[in-house]
Computed example of a mutant assay.
Amino acid sequence: MKQKVWLITGVSKGLGREIAKQAAETGDIVIGTVRREKDKTEFENSINAKAFVIDLTDTKQIPSLVNSIAKQYGTIDVLVNNAGFGLFGMIEEFKEDEIIDQFNVNFISVWKLCKSVLPYMREKRQGTIVQLSSRVGIAAGIGNGIYAASKFAIEGMSEALKLEVEPFGIKVLLVEPGALRTDFFGASVKYAENELAVYTERLNNVRENTKSINGRQPGDPMKAAEAIISAVNTGNPVFRLPLTSGTIETLKTKITEFQSCIEVSEAIAKSIDY
């Protein structure tokens, strides 16, 4: 199998780190991104791979990063848009700058990375873009509306991107993990600064609930990384890659909800047409 060049964002820990580790172990060339110099040193000392320090919210840096990698290695075969974080709280609790920060990291930087990598993939008429969505990119719930919105945006962009790049031999893999046992609900999680007591009095406390999940998530990040790498290496047999039983249950619930909507509303929907 031809040696691939991987660019993986957010490799200091969690799923991104595991994908990088396993891809490097197969003999592929792995380049990761981290936010701090000490994370770069630790990553490069423990994995046969290279890391760049970059703040992905500063999207002006992204094209030069991609250009330097492509120039050094000749191409980028696989882009894994893994970097991101979860921001939780009730919709009413958020300030505008908190939402902008969530979308800058989880969506705008992903778009800019895709935009920067595509010319190189198109020139080679091959490549794979792996988009990390989430179970909540399928269905949102109480307290995760803003995070879910950023992942809904990834889903919409990825659906269109798949159709746009297929004629050039480029594939898109949309990964939808459930709760993996990573640091997502530990040091990585963020909450709305403002907390309205009226919600905690009526609904479950999203802050306490998410903290209680940390370290008890049912999903194995090692197995998730294996599944992603296998999908890439076998040519993406599916566009969507749901990971964990929780994601499958969410898909089933969503399908049932859509089917009920069709049954109730089909006649009136069709009556609107000329």
Rank of each mutant, 00 (worst) to 15 (best):
M157E: 03
N106L: 12
K124S: 06
K151R: 12
A192E: 01
V136C: 04
T182N: 03
Q126I: 09
R135H: 14
K115F: 13
N205G: 07
L180P: 12
L180C: 04
L173R: 11
E159R: 03
N214K: 05
W111G: 04
M157Q: 00
R216H: 15
R202K: 15
K115C: 11
K151T: 04
W111D: 04
K171H: 08
G137Q: 04
K211R: 14
A187S: 14
I154V: 14
K151H: 12
L132D: 06
L174P: 02
K115W: 13
C114V: 08
G143L: 02
E176W: 05
L196Q: 11
G143N: 12
R202T: 13
E159T: 02
I154L: 11
R135M: 15
A192S: 14
K151E: 11
A197W: 04
E164Y: 14
A160F: 01
E123G: 10
G186P: 08
L196M: 14
T128L: 01
G215H: 01
I138Y: 09
F107A: 00
I170S: 04
E155G: 04
S188P: 06
S109H: 05
S133L: 01
N194E: 09
A153K: 01
G143A: 12
G178Y: 10
A179Q: 13
L132K: 01
V172Q: 03
V136Y: 03
S134L: 08
G143H: 02
